[in-house]
Design a protein around this nucleic acid. Sequence first.
DNA 1: CCGTACATGAAAAAATCATGAAAATGTGAG
DNA 2: CTCACATTTTCATGATTTTTTCATGTACGG
Lengths: 205, 205
Amino acid sequence: MREMLKEALEVFYRVDTAETLGEAVEWIESFAYSAMLLDRNLFGKDEGMELIPRLKKLQPSCAVMIASAYGGVEERIAGLAAGADDYLEKPYDLRELKMRLDGLIRRFAPDVIEVGSLTLDLGNQTISAEGKNIVLSKKEHDVLFFIASRPDKIFSRDDIANAVYSDPSSMTSNTIDVVISHIRKKLPVDIIETVKGRGYALKNV
Amino acid sequence: MREMLKEALEVFYRVDTAETLGEAVEWIESFAYSAMLLDRNLFGKDEGMELIPRLKKLQPSCAVMIASAYGGVEERIAGLAAGADDYLEKPYDLRELKMRLDGLIRRFAPDVIEVGSLTLDLGNQTISAEGKNIVLSKKEHDVLFFIASRPDKIFSRDDIANAVYSDPSSMTSNTIDVVISHIRKKLPVDIIETVKGRGYALKNV
DNA sequence: CCGTACATGAAAAAATCATGAAAATGTGAG
DNA sequence: CTCACATTTTCATGATTTTTTCATGTACGG
């Protein structure tokens, strides 16, 4: 079941799954997530719930959705009391799950990223520093906001090309590098980190 | 109840909720809102009402809607007397709430935009500069006021076409560009900003 | 040090945009 | 209905900006 779900969701999200409570804890201590989907019937009924405050402490901007077969009011209340943000009754439709997840993620996504004096507003898709707006060209903009969409992740040049270019296969030169260089030249602080051999990532503060 | 409402409204608006009067005060001192929905039965019957003048002083263009279970005439009068702009009787339908909120927000939205000597009156849909009225043709007018409807947003040519043309798919040429050019020619100041690669936006001051 | 990966200036190529002018369409008076 | 005039759309052009390539210099890890 977990593997099926993972496979289905992986079309839209980057997904990690945990088989045990300990594994889950390891994940949330290692990566920044947008959302956690927690089956109330896993890990024992209430032990699993302990994950929620733990996650929320580490990652306040991560949303928590609980799925459970027993859809009584008490269940729902218990979930929300434990800190969940949404509640889904099994059996559920995959499309419904995706819609609800998207909604949750949208609501919880921190929509500004600040690095030094620089502010990226992911909602309005604008960049500013010390009150002044900064304008990038389209490609520069797309690349920067793609990298910023997952501040934790390291993106390979291929990742970036696939996201930003309609025909990534036709990219022969070091275009991405140059675009990065241009972005850096236009921003007052270097917000992009080069990870030699792996790609680029957003500098975490 | 509050959480449910928040969740429902969050599909359409950005929502903050307050559990206590103090929390509410904190919110309205920190952010600019379009509307406040106030349950008459919260915070004690009349203490809550004190919020209204306080809000109105800080944010005159913020609308206030009161919801209450006891729908007597006196209640309604008391609410309006306290400075509320609309009154909603519980139980209410969510769709009704949204419609009424939208109406309120529209009524209270500051409806003039001034850029330099130019004034756009969104309510009356008129344009003037230095006392003189400026008349645009229909398409020009539609395009300009569509862009002005969201002064912060960048509109792609597709956005504009979809909003202004009945059959946007049949648009093959650079019609939007030309209309923009015409608008610029008729206005004394260039109020429209070109965002290369992305579209057009209203110039912010 | 050495080799590879990265950064960047500069030139070339491509895309985007503004606008004049012409063609098509709509409008209203006589 | 017809003509004159205004509006809307298309198209061609040139100016400008963006994007890409390429060559070369620099930093980094081993």
